[in-house]
Nucleic acid binder design. Structure first.
Length: 570
DNA sequence: GCCGTTTTCGGCCCGACTGTTTTCAGTCG
């Protein structure tokens, strides 16, 4: 999958073009980069499928950029980019990560001081060289040093599972203030993106000054990056948090704007212009007259479409669907009635069967599946036949105790290198659900991994493919699969694909889950909980499903236990 | 460089905050 490499090159080219003061092209390169980044299909597959013409189908990619993509796929570099880099030997990508530094300042710093990277920048700033440049000053110099510090400290994008609790804490602390009316977390958190760059908070109040004063000095705020009457930025822990104060009359247009995404907003604003309107965070205007803005519904309706949940706002077809009133009715957390992946003290987790079952029941579920590990490599206490039968007795006991709740016996079985399961039929047939997963041999190539998974699906006991790509966000990319073949086989064999809810996994991801759904493959959302506290991770899996346009009917653990067993048994 | 239900040419989303520029460019989202 070369999508992100190509996107990175286009972003870097955009920055260099901007440094050279070239108009419009930078935006075109960035738009293309964003599209490529969000593609579900590997760009090399798109090219294989339809050549240059297929590449030009990508939004924002025309003949020139398509040619550059082709060049990269053929010779692993883009000549015009190499030439650009030669003329501008600056690590733009690295320097752009420094807050407050953009192409123009990077250009200036290179021209005046020959600064090419963060290390050189830091040295020059510490030596007081930046303030001597006529258009910069002491404050800029100090801010750059602080920003470098922040860049070093904060590192990668945060997992949603890390950022969301922080955002909720900030939201709660703000709401407690009596001079604050409403607080809404917006941005990528509202859209439930799997990783988060910063936290965006929208506040309505009649006392903006008090709100901004409180926000910038609240407990946990380490540094004020910017502070104005209606907009401020702080560093909270090691995350940046933006807060924006808005008049209640503009609440809808403000949340719409602040939730994004950027591409969704741009598309909406274009539609507004075409209709002779202007859309901003303050409202939808016809001339000077505000025609919508109090609610999001108003804004979307006036633009000729229905309201849509934040998770859909990525400019991935949701606008066209909303114009035709054909949006999906997204699945909700309350639709989930069972959790189909969790572990107990039988293998590598912390709670007993009964503790897990009780915790699931108290979450309002009707059933859960205990899916302890079966396999050979790297697992504590893998389940064999004897212990499986032992556990079965224990589950029966728990089941007789719990009213209106069913504990299913399942397993998470290793897929061997050849695609066979790491257990005999004698053992497999004991289980109500059999999750299968790859835990070793992740470096095999795409064709081998695809065949391996498809072989595992052909086993008559397999019900669910668990964390199908093995990726861990920010840690490892996971193995490559030919998803078309995998989903086709899943459909044929009546095997469900899992959306694993663990924040570092979220596997399948939103894009692949949407593709699976489009193939008619059933999905299962499981937490993979190793302790009772982790059962609440379900909301992250549901978020992925929502971003994947999934409805209740697409997810098997919205079925009653009877329906579920009927649906998965073969 | 891309794109078209007003356009194959001439547009390209909109506004807040900062710093140092006394009127605005750069950056950010």
């Amino acid at each position: 999958m070369k999508n992100s490499e190509i996107a990175k090159i286009f972003y870097a080219m955009a920055d260099i073009l901007e440094m050279k003061n070239i108009q419009w092209k930078p935006n075109a390169y960035r738009k293309a980069a964003r599209s490529i980044e969000m593609l579900s299909e590997a760009i090399e597959d798109i090219y294989k499928r339809g050549g240059i013409k297929a590449l030009e189908e990508i939004p924002g990619v025309g003949i020139h950029l398509a040619t550059k993509i082709e060049e990269f796929l053929r010779i692993d570099k883009v000549k015009s980019y190499e030439e650009m880099k030669k003329s501008m030997p600056v690590n733009v990508e690295e320097l752009m990560r420094v807050e407050g530094l953009g192409p123009k300042k990077i250009m200036l710093l290179y021209k005046k001081l020959r600064i090419r990277n963060i290390a050189e920048l830091e040295k020059a700033a510490q030596a007081g060289k930046l303030r001597k440049i006529s258009t910069l000053g002491e404050k800029t110099e100090a801010n750059i040093l602080k920003a470098i510090e922040f860049t070093k400290m904060s590192g990668k994008r945060k997992l949603l599972g890390v950022a969301l609790p922080i955002a909720r804490k900030i939201e709660g602390d703000l709401k407690k203030q009596k001079f604050i009316d409403k607080v809404i977390v917006c941005g990528s958190i509202a859209r439930r993106l799997e990783t988060i760059g910063d936290i965006d908070v929208l506040i309505t109040t009649k006392f903006p000054k008090e709100a901004m004063d409180f926000f910038t000095t609240m407990k946990g705020a380490n540094r004020i990056v910017a502070k104005g009457p209606t907009k401020s930025t702080i560093v909270y822990g090691n995350v940046e948090v933006d807060a924006r104060v808005i008049d209640p009359e503009s609440f809808g247009s403000a949340t719409q704007y602040f939730i994004g995404s950027k591409d969704h907003n741009i598309a909406l604003r274009r539609i507004a212009i075409k209709k002779g309107y202007k859309l901003s965070e303050y409202g939808l205007f016809k001339g000077n007259k505000k025609i919508a803005g109090k609610t999001e519904e108003e804004v979307y309706n006036k633009l000729g479409m229905t309201w849509m949940p934040p998770e859909l706002r990525e400019n991935h077809g949701e606008i066209e669907a909303a114009q035709k009133n054909k949006l999906p009715k997204l699945i909700e957390l309350k639709d989930i009635v069972g959790d189909l992946q969790m572990h107990t003290t039988y293998s590598d987790a912390e709670n007993t069967v009964e503790e897990m079952a009780q915790a699931c029941k108290s979450l309002g579920y009707k059933y859960c599946a205990i899916t302890d590990h079966v396999g050979t490599t790297g697992i504590t206490n893998p389940m064999n036949l004897k212990r499986t039968l032992q556990q079965k007795k224990e589950i029966e006991k728990v089941n007789s105790k719990l009213k209106g709740f069913t504990v299913l016996q399942g397993a998470e079985v290793d897929i061997k290198l050849n695609g066979e399961l790491a257990a005999e039929s004698e053992q497999l047939k004991q289980y109500d659900v059999v999750l299968v997963a790859i835990h070793q041999g992740m470096k095999r190539d795409k064709a081998q991994q695809t065949e391996r998974i498809i072989n595992a699906m052909k086993n008559r006991y397999t019900t669910i493919i668990s964390h199908p790509t093995g990726r861990e966000i920010n840690e490892r990319p996971g193995y490559q699969l030919d998803f078309e073949k995998v989903f086709k086989a899943a459909k044929e064999n009546n095997v469900a694909m899992e959306i694993n809810s663990f924040p570092a996994r979220l596997d399948l991801n939103d894009v692949n889950a949407r593709a699976a759904k489009d193939f008619g493959v059933m999905l299962s959302i499981g937490t993979d909980a190793h302790q009772i506290g982790q059962l609440s991770l379900m909301e992250y899996g549901v978020s992925v499903a929502r971003r994947a346009w999934c409805e209740k009917k697409d997810i098997i653990n919205t079925l009653s236990v009877e329906q579920l067993l009927k649906r998965i048994r073969r």
